[in-house]
Design a binder for these strands. Structure first.
Lengths: 266, 266
DNA sequence: CAGTCATGTTTAGCCATGGTGAACAAGACT
DNA sequence: AGTCTTGTTCACCATGGCTAAACATGACTG
């Protein structure tokens, strides 16, 4: 969370280059040199290095990131204890409710989606380039709040100190004390609500997934338009389905842990 | 393909570190320092740098790669013209045949899978950690040979010069001239066969996907056990289904290109 | 409960090396 | 042919990456 004391500059340059390649959807040496404010020579040497190790692909004069990122990423996800034991249940949840179902975990103080399944009636165009979008702040999503509620207080404070409580809609919780109250409520009832706090006209219900030591590993949620997520649907039906799913996942994980020999990934 | 003239050493160290983290499924500073043959200080600085940029996660004293790799990877795949236009068709192919269906493209002279769908009767345990495994050599897979057949001769030679023709089974083509003959046959009939050349008792049929300029973008294939992929199944039925799928995908891509404004990714 | 031995982290300093700028090569388009 | 581009390479120099050692922290042990 705190900045590196002796960061490796050349690595930071390469990282900037990778992120430029991502946001530009591929680029030429000159474009990248301009974007990073380095000479063409430098950009070229970094690209050649990355290419040699298969992180970057060159076709003609344009460089793009290679699918090696996907191979590594898929490997990590499939190694995840949480994902392995939650996948089927999340899919079930989407089928059951007809809405979007999500599985998220915390990384770097942000909410990182591990799985996202579209239910039959789910709103929104599926044609989005990203699929698993960039991590979100924890305080304005249902999974995020469910996770925050069971993270150690010190960690919660560290995260808020670092990221603050940026506002996404008028409903977003932007006050520390209000957030702490909400988290206490979540602990009482066992699930979290998101009432148009991230996107207007969208609500969500999320439940934490904890191991037998009580540590949160992540959370599941269901999200949908206010028009369907209202009244007892929002206050009873969905919370029950989501917490049930979370309970099943927890049992799966506990049984897997009992069998032992799990990889070191959350 | 040729080594970088002025590689950036610090970047190479970070890359080694990333790959060590992958193969060790997470590790501590000391483990990594030993694995790379650098001091703990160096390992630490690299890890701290990567962590600050969210490429690495630290929990307790063990570092693991972060899901950022997955986010980038999914973005790249979903930006791929080939994947977008082939996805549904490959899934259809798996449903139709009941076997595994694959979509691959060439990267760095290797065959990189973009999609892998398990049909109803497909053999083999699905519980593999990787899902999209590491790239394979082109000369011993059906998709690979289909791709090689339509790559410029100079590129084919460059690839073979670099990787050679390593043997996977007794059936693997390990002779250059024999390979060139096979590629000529593939061009004649329009599809490629893999007759236990990668894995014993497994056969596959692959067809190239080309754009309107005739350049190969990738290939689709169906693979299954010899017991089902035999006689007219192997010589007629599967080739027809696979080439039909490839044709549909090519049409999809051509229409998408006509609409224009495609990302720069294959 | 002290003592030991791991670990991760930080520091100081030297020499390698990453970066610069300019020269070079290779095409594309007048 | 000539003039733009572009990517690539070279030689030099100061930055900063690496090492080694010291420091801090905590876990295990006798």
């Amino acid at each position: 969370m705190k900045p590196a004391k002796n960061p490796v500059g050349a690595v930071e340059t390469t990282i900037e280059l990778i992120e430029a390649l991502e946001s530009l959807d591929g680029a030429t040496v000159t474009e990248l040199a301009d974007a990073l404010g380095v000479t063409k020579g430098t950009a070229h040497n970094h690209l050649a290095t990355l290419q040699q190790h298969h992180y970057v692909v060159k076709q003609g004069n344009t460089y793009t990131l290679s699918l090696k990122f996907l191979v590594i990423g898929e490997y990590l996800r499939n190694s995840s204890v949480l994902y392995e034991n939650a996948k089927a249940e999340v899919e079930q949840l989407a089928a059951d409710t007809g809405e979007y179902a999500h599985l998220s975990t915390e990384q770097h103080g942000l909410s990182q989606k591990l799985h996202k399944v579209r239910g039959e009636y789910a709103v929104g165009t599926e044609y989005q380039r990203a699929k698993l979008q960039k991590p979100d702040c924890l305080h304005y999503t249902a999974t995020g709040k469910a996770i925050l509620a069971y993270l150690p207080r010190s960690r919660v404070e560290e995260i808020i100190d670092y990221y603050g409580l940026p506002e996404r809609t008028k409903q977003t919780i932007t006050d520390r004390d209000e957030l702490y109250e909400t988290l206490a409520e979540i602990r009482e009832r066992g699930y979290a609500l998101n009432d148009e706090e991230e996107v207007e006209r969208m609500r969500a219900v999320g439940a934490p997934i904890r191991n037998k030591d009580g540590a949160v590993l992540g959370a599941v949620s269901v999200s949908g338009p206010v028009s369907r997520m209202k009244d007892e649907q929002f206050t009873d039906v969905m919370p029950e389905k989501v917490t049930d799913a979370a309970t099943v996942i927890e049992m799966n994980i506990n049984m897997a842990e009992r069998r032992g020999n799990l990889p070191r990934y959350v």
